[in-house]
């Protein structure tokens, strides 16, 4: 079976690729937004901790 044959969904192309496409898109969005979220949290918490340490050292 060739790749073309295996992936030819005929008159159902819209339904099949619409399903697989949206699944892929959703997972991609979740992974990208999680990375972004994690970076933001790291920066924020890092800043808070560094400020707290500085204040402790000065006191």
């Amino acid at each position: 079976m060739s790749i073309g044959e295996a992936l030819d969904m005929g008159k159902y192309s819209f339904y099949v690729w619409g399903s697989y496409g949206v699944l892929a898109l959703c997972l991609l969005i979740e992974v990208i937004s999680l990375r972004h979220q994690r970076r933001t949290i790291k920066q924020r918490v890092g800043r808070i901790v560094r400020v707290a340490t500085r204040q402790e050292n000065e006191a």
Binding site: D8, M9, G10, K11, Y12, Y15, V16, S19, Y20, L23
Partner: peptide, 11 residues
Amino acid sequence: QGQSYKIIFIH
């Protein structure tokens, strides 16, 4: 169902 049944693998 023709090729539309392929949706089962993610549904």
